[in-house]
Design a protein around this nucleic acid. Structure first.
Lengths: 111, 111
DNA sequence: GCATACTGTTACGCTAGCGAAATTATTGGC
DNA sequence: GCCAATAATTTCGCTAGCGTAACAGTATGC
């Protein structure tokens, strides 16, 4: 892959997201969502904050927003009730499937 | 490219951007920047607003922000002084070169 | 049982983004 | 010359994000 193609790919994916009616997720929100879906559970606020090198309220707020969109679910850890476990949802899976399709599609187009 | 790899690629690129000290550009800002650099000039506020399907103040504000970061430059069109022509900068080129390297790098890693 | 440590959330003051509407500057029709 | 059209910006009220600091709930050591 060459630089021009990489940037063109990136541009088209970003543009598709901007044009999409779904309110844009921020870079941080997207990163959190992908981490929850791609890396093995359990996922906690503290763990995500450490991985992204941001403060815990950033994670709490992102979970509030994405929770309202039903992309993510929160649940108390019954083993240690201080923890909150972050879980996947059907809607979140669908959202990421569509994102994957978009990437693959644009990757093919720029070939 | 399969779905899992596409998402992993996307996650790693997003994470790198989040971890980077440079203040994150929003999806819209990134799209504007890429469009300016990848598509043939001239670029105007109106043209970009139409392409992204957003209002003109969104473009004005994005140019303010990215102008302050010296990623982009504004110049009056001397032919029709109502227009503003948006131009590339050295710093913007460097920024996108680094982005391209990152994409290529992560694409290689996920292979 | 009580102090301490730890987890996630809330409160606070602030900044940046948003769309709609008003405003300024410029052009072109007539 | 003047009026309507056009391009970009500014203003308005609003929402959502940010980090710091304070807070509430839970677990653990002694």
């Amino acid at each position: 892959m060459k630089a021009g193609r990489a940037l063109k790919l990136w541009q088209e994916i970003c543009l598709s997201q901007v044009l999409d009616e779904m309110p844009d997720l921020s870079l941080r929100q997207t990163t959190i969502l992908l981490t929850i879906y791609l890396e093995p559970p359990p996922h906690t606020v503290r763990g995500l904050a450490a991985k992204l090198n941001v403060t815990k309220p950033v994670i709490t707020r992102a979970l509030d927003t994405m929770g309202a969109l039903e992309l993510v679910n929160r649940r108390r850890d019954e083993n240690d009730r201080r923890n909150v476990l972050i879980q996947r949802t059907v809607r979140g899976s669908v959202y990421l499937e569509k994102l994957a399709d978009l990437i693959i599609d644009k990757y093919g187009e720029t070939a």
